[in-house]
């Protein structure tokens, strides 16, 4: 019990420090960005906006003040749980994020589970039958996907399945012209299908390759050779000996990939016109919307950090040795 409390305490302190560091760093980066939010906002209508009006817009957004003052105001509000108001959406940052997070969440959760399960399975298979035709096939696939950009896969899938075959919808989170509550769960899944497949296809590569390496290592270990000497079949060795040893690095990798998943979702959402957090991030960046961009950065920091902490926690469940180490150090 004490270990768990200590674990949580350490993690929380680290998270607080991390958030502070990320906040400062991203603020410095964003305030040095050359994008002028007022120009980005006005677009071609810029000629009809006098210098006086520019000042009024800058005042509304608070971008007329020096960066340090802006940071302190923002940080002060943040401590009280107020993320500020998004300039381009003209509504509280948390509202903007929460609306979009749910849409993105399902996309990321599904893609993450698929790529994790499939990647692990493929990696085990490839590793167990090292050098076989199936191993080569899996390896070629993994290498290809590891070097393919997400948006490209997305566009290819879109062209094939939505345009030529018309099996999947071309855009959006539910059918065009329908409201969210009119759409059935099947329709929503149907619209999720292609973005999820895109993200999964790419996500599989890394976990497959790592799992494969670890499986090969395990298959050549003393205990595996011993088991084989006792007459265990390859499948038996994989299921009874290798899996537990391979699982640990796979869990680490899968949870560490949450950050990449976030990045991948940004691209996939762009391609499929899927209105999630990824699109909001792009818009915030292009529009120079500092509060929103920082809000998203912070939320995703917490998200990735939580993922990694869960991985740390799962170690202790999966591997008895980790529990001992944690216990003896206390």
């Amino acid at each position: 019990m004490f270990t768990i409390i200590k674990f949580l305490f350490l993690k929380t302190t680290r998270l607080a420090l991390l958030i502070a560091a990320v906040a400062v760093l991203s603020f410095v980066l964003v305030s040095n960005s050359p994008i002028d939010p007022v120009d980005a906002y006005a677009g071609a209508a810029i000629l009809n906006i006098s210098p006086e009006q520019r000042d009024i817009i800058a005042q509304r957004w608070g971008v007329d003040k020096p960066p340090i003052e802006r940071f302190l105001t923002w940080a002060g509000q943040l401590v009280q749980g107020d993320f500020g108001v998004s300039a381009i959406f003209n509504e509280p940052v948390l509202d903007v994020i929460s609306k979009r997070f749910i849409t993105s969440f399902w996309l990321m959760a599904l893609a993450w589970s698929f790529s994790g399960a499939l990647g692990f399975g493929l990696g085990l298979t490839a590793g167990a039958w090292e050098g076989s035709l199936i191993d080569r096939g899996i390896r070629i696939y993994a290498y290809t996907m590891a070097s393919t950009p997400t948006f490209w896969v997305g566009i290819v899938l879109l062209m094939v399945f939505s345009v030529f075959l018309s099996w999947t919808p071309t855009c959006c989170a539910w059918p065009i012209g329908m409201s969210a509550d009119q759409a059935t769960i099947w329709q929503r899944l149907h619209h999720l299908l292609l973005p999820v497949i895109t993200l999964s296809l790419i996500g599989i590569a890394k976990i497959t390759l790592h799992t494969r390496e670890k499986t090969i290592e395990a298959m050549h270990s003393d205990y595996a050779i011993f088991a084989r000497a006792q007459g265990e079949s390859t499948i038996g060795i994989v299921l009874r000996q290798a899996v537990r040893n391979v699982a640990l690095p796979a869990v680490t990798l899968q949870f560490a990939s949450l950050g990449e998943l976030f990045g991948g979702a940004v691209l996939a959402e762009q391609v499929f016109a899927y209105p999630g957090l990824g699109r909001a991030t792009v818009e915030a960046g292009i529009g120079g919307d500092v509060p929103l961009l920082l809000g998203i950065v912070l939320i995703s920091t917490v998200f990735v950090f939580t993922g990694n902490s869960v991985a740390d926690f799962i170690y202790q469940l999966v591997d008895p040795r980790m529990r001992k180490v944690a216990g003896s150090s206390s």
Binding site: L158, M159, V163, T170, C171, C172, I176, G177, F272, A273
Partner: peptide, 13 residues
């Protein structure tokens, strides 16, 4: 119904 999608996506639709 106004669809807000990128040009490629709208074209596919």
């Amino acid at each position: 119904v106004f669809l807000f999608a990128a040009e490629d996506t709208a074209l596919a639709a």
